[in-house]
Design a protein around this nucleic acid. Structure first.
Lengths: 205, 205
DNA sequence: GTCTATAGATAGATAGAC
DNA sequence: GTCTATCTATCTATAGAC
């Protein structure tokens, strides 16, 4: 950026900030539209309309429809990774039940915002190889971490920790995707309790 | 049908049989096409091509694309219901672990044929209210039956059997959808064992 | 920078010949 | 009954005015 450009716009709301705001408006609108209508019926026209801009403007911020989807998914994955990291730092100690509870609760939290959107993202959206790789990598990391945890924790008595880790990660992911989308928050507490109980009793043998 | 009509076509391959055969050809082709390409890219043209008929003929047998999807899904649901009934007749006696094994194995069996198709049917296909109601009803029945089973079985020590039944049915359904599609048959045995173990230890407290 | 208008592509579905 | 040819609708994406 040259000094000239800085002098031209000395007011508030410099270009980049305003542009970033519009980007966010589009992403938020897209999240609602995809969540409400699904992938195919979540048209770029609808997104632009909901964002309060024209279709032409939308294409100034994103090269195509799938780029919007990809950004929404990456955003969610980053959330998930952040939560996973947080959990991994916090809870080396404690009973296995508490560890599972942190894990499950983190997963629930990261799905509370837009549960219907997430099902669209993960189930319907055509994923680019790039995004697919990210998903696979994140899941692989989770499984590896879970296996390590099972191997090291004294309470755990399951034999095949690799299979167990995959089963646990898959179960938590899938059950939460479905249950968060279908149930009221008041019931989520109970489901969390039962899911944690199921996993705990499983690994204790 | 009048006597005249009977006399006009005395050969083999009466109309209805041949028509039913064509219907089945279309459904089989559609199963492959949807499984391979997904919902959106599973076009009626591709289905007709794979079935070896023209697009016009296809529309003589089905009113629209979604009717084909719906019939495939209903067919699968009927399979599932049949298996559930079979299990319900067989296994009042025996340890809870064996009951879960029948349940899980039945679920796996009914997904072995066309796992990728099933994911498309259940995740991507826009479901009509009619089909949605059928799915809900089947699931409700399964949950009710599972709850009854938990309530009556002496080994079961879980408190909230309603929530537990829903968690179990959801877990089996989702985990199997995903795992059958993703894994080789050789691994399915291990996953079955672990899933059964998880459920058994869960309800035993 | 934002808009309107529209190009370009492809889908589902139908008409009408044979 | 089956086909080809085509209609209609709808979507993504772009061009060009302001």
């Amino acid at each position: 950026m040259t000094p000239d450009q800085r002098r031209i716009q000395p007011r508030k709301q410099p270009r980049q900030v305003r542009a970033e705001l519009t980007r966010q408006r589009i992403l938020t609108a897209a999240a609602h539209v995809f969540g409400d209508h699904g992938y195919a019926a979540g048209t770029t026209n609808r997104i632009a309309e909901r964002a309060g801009i024209s279709i032409g403007s939308l294409y100034q911020y994103f090269p195509n429809k799938d780029a919007i989807l990809a950004e929404l998914l990456v955003r969610h994955l980053d959330d998930g990774a952040a939560i996973a990291e947080r959990v991994q730092r916090e809870e080396l100690p404690g009973p296995i039940e508490e560890i599972f509870r942190l894990f499950v609760r983190g997963a629930i939290e990261s799905h509370l915002d837009e549960p219907r959107l997430l099902r669209v993202l993960l189930e319907q959206a055509p994923k680019s190889t790039d995004v697919l790789e990210r998903v696979e990598l994140l899941k692989k990391n989770l499984v590896a971490y879970m296996r390590e945890l099972l191997d090291e924790h004294p309470e755990v008595r399951v034999a095949d920790t690799e299979t167990a880790a995959r089963l646990i990660v898959t179960t938590v992911e899938l059950v939460i995707h479905q249950l968060v989308a279908d149930h009221e928050p008041v019931e989520l507490g109970k489901l969390e309790d039962e899911l944690v109980a199921m996993l705990t009793r499983y690994v204790r043998g």
